[in-house]
Protein backbone atom coordinates (compact mmCIF):
# COMPACT_ATOMS: atom_id res chain seq x y z
CA UNK A 1 0.00 0.00 0.00
CA UNK A 2 1.03 3.57 -0.58
CA UNK A 3 1.13 5.72 2.54
CA UNK A 4 0.55 9.40 1.86
CA UNK A 5 0.09 12.47 4.08
CA UNK A 6 -3.65 11.90 3.61
CA UNK A 7 -3.63 8.32 4.92
CA UNK A 8 -5.96 7.98 7.92
CA UNK A 9 -5.37 5.89 11.03
CA UNK A 10 -7.50 2.99 9.85
CA UNK A 11 -5.31 2.44 6.80
CA UNK A 12 -1.91 2.61 8.47
CA UNK A 13 -0.10 -0.69 8.98
CA UNK A 14 -0.30 -1.98 12.56
CA UNK A 15 2.49 -1.26 15.00
CA UNK A 16 4.02 1.66 13.12
CA UNK A 17 6.01 -0.51 10.73
CA UNK A 18 7.02 0.52 7.22
CA UNK A 19 6.04 -2.30 4.85
CA UNK A 20 7.64 -0.93 1.70
CA UNK A 21 11.36 -1.76 1.93
CA UNK A 22 13.74 0.74 0.38
CA UNK A 23 11.06 3.31 -0.49
CA UNK A 24 13.36 6.15 0.62
CA UNK A 25 14.41 6.09 -3.02
CA UNK A 26 11.20 7.97 -3.68
CA UNK A 27 12.44 10.78 -1.48
CA UNK A 28 14.51 13.30 -3.42
CA UNK A 29 17.59 14.60 -1.62
CA UNK A 30 19.21 15.91 -4.79
CA UNK A 31 17.71 19.32 -4.06
CA UNK A 32 20.08 19.69 -1.11
CA UNK A 33 23.00 20.00 -3.51
CA UNK A 34 24.93 23.24 -3.96
CA UNK A 35 27.68 21.64 -6.05
CA UNK A 36 27.07 19.04 -8.74
CA UNK A 37 29.63 16.35 -9.53
CA UNK A 38 30.33 16.17 -13.26
CA UNK A 39 32.13 13.08 -14.46
CA UNK A 40 34.39 13.07 -17.50
CA UNK A 41 33.74 9.71 -19.10
CA UNK A 42 36.95 9.87 -21.11
CA UNK A 43 39.13 10.32 -18.05
CA UNK A 44 37.31 7.80 -15.83
CA UNK A 45 39.14 4.49 -15.43
CA UNK A 46 36.26 2.83 -13.57
CA UNK A 47 38.38 2.21 -10.49
CA UNK A 48 35.11 2.54 -8.51
CA UNK A 49 36.67 4.38 -5.58
CA UNK A 50 33.95 7.02 -5.93
CA UNK A 51 31.32 4.28 -5.74
CA UNK A 52 32.63 2.58 -2.59
CA UNK A 53 32.98 5.91 -0.76
CA UNK A 54 29.67 7.49 -1.75
CA UNK A 55 27.45 8.15 1.33
CA UNK A 56 24.32 8.33 -0.81
CA UNK A 57 24.63 5.27 -3.04
CA UNK A 58 24.58 7.73 -5.92
CA UNK A 59 27.31 6.44 -8.20
CA UNK A 60 25.46 4.24 -10.66
CA UNK A 61 27.49 1.19 -11.62
CA UNK A 62 26.54 -1.41 -14.20
CA UNK A 63 28.77 -4.33 -15.14
CA UNK A 64 31.60 -2.89 -13.06
CA UNK A 65 31.49 0.42 -14.94
CA UNK A 66 30.30 3.80 -13.78
CA UNK A 67 27.37 4.70 -16.00
CA UNK A 68 26.18 7.82 -14.30
CA UNK A 69 25.40 9.75 -11.16
CA UNK A 70 22.05 9.59 -9.42
CA UNK A 71 21.26 13.29 -9.20
CA UNK A 72 17.94 12.56 -7.49
CA UNK A 73 19.84 11.51 -4.38
CA UNK A 74 23.38 12.91 -4.65
CA UNK A 75 23.75 15.65 -2.02
CA UNK A 76 26.86 17.07 -3.63
CA UNK A 77 29.26 16.31 -0.78
CA UNK A 78 32.16 16.05 -3.23
CA UNK A 79 33.78 12.96 -1.71
CA UNK A 80 33.78 11.37 -5.19
CA UNK A 81 35.74 14.26 -6.69
CA UNK A 82 38.14 14.22 -3.74
CA UNK A 83 38.74 10.46 -3.79
CA UNK A 84 39.27 10.27 -7.55
CA UNK A 85 43.02 9.55 -7.96
CA UNK A 86 45.11 12.73 -8.48
CA UNK A 87 46.39 11.60 -11.85
CA UNK A 88 42.89 11.02 -13.16
CA UNK A 89 40.58 13.59 -11.61
CA UNK A 90 37.60 12.58 -13.68
CA UNK A 91 35.05 14.32 -11.44
CA UNK A 92 34.72 18.05 -10.97
CA UNK A 93 32.32 19.88 -8.71
CA UNK A 94 30.34 22.61 -10.44
CA UNK A 95 28.12 25.11 -8.64
CA UNK A 96 24.41 24.37 -9.03
CA UNK A 97 22.38 27.06 -10.68
CA UNK A 98 18.94 27.78 -9.31
CA UNK A 99 16.32 29.15 -11.65
Amino acid sequence: MKITPETGWKELPQGGVIPEAGNAEQYITGSWRTFRPIRDEEKCTNCLLCWIHCPDSSIIVEDAKVVGIDYDHCKGCGICAEICPPKIKAITMVAEKRD
Binding site: G22, A24, E25, Q26, Y27, I28, T29, W32, R33, C47, L48, L49, W51, I52, H53, C54, P55, D56, S57, S58, V61, D63, A64, D70, D72, H73, C74, K75, G76, C77, G78, I79
Partner: peptide, 26 residues
Protein backbone atom coordinates in the same frame (compact mmCIF):
# COMPACT_ATOMS: atom_id res chain seq x y z
CA UNK B 1 37.62 -6.56 -5.77
CA UNK B 2 35.54 -3.42 -6.11
CA UNK B 3 34.37 -4.72 -9.47
CA UNK B 4 33.04 -7.87 -7.82
CA UNK B 5 31.49 -5.97 -4.93
CA UNK B 6 29.77 -3.58 -7.30
CA UNK B 7 27.67 -6.39 -8.71
CA UNK B 8 26.01 -7.01 -5.35
CA UNK B 9 22.60 -5.65 -4.57
CA UNK B 10 22.92 -2.80 -2.11
CA UNK B 11 20.75 -2.92 0.98
CA UNK B 12 20.85 0.80 1.79
CA UNK B 13 19.22 3.12 -0.74
CA UNK B 14 19.83 6.76 -1.48
CA UNK B 15 17.16 9.18 -0.33
CA UNK B 16 18.07 8.84 3.33
CA UNK B 17 18.57 12.10 5.14
CA UNK B 18 22.06 11.89 6.59
CA UNK B 19 24.14 15.02 6.03
CA UNK B 20 26.22 15.39 2.87
CA UNK B 21 29.58 13.71 3.45
CA UNK B 22 28.43 11.65 6.44
CA UNK B 23 30.68 8.71 7.29
CA UNK B 24 27.92 6.53 8.73
CA UNK B 25 26.22 5.53 5.49
CA UNK B 26 29.60 4.88 3.81
Amino acid sequence: SLKQLSSKKELLTGGHRLCAGCGASI
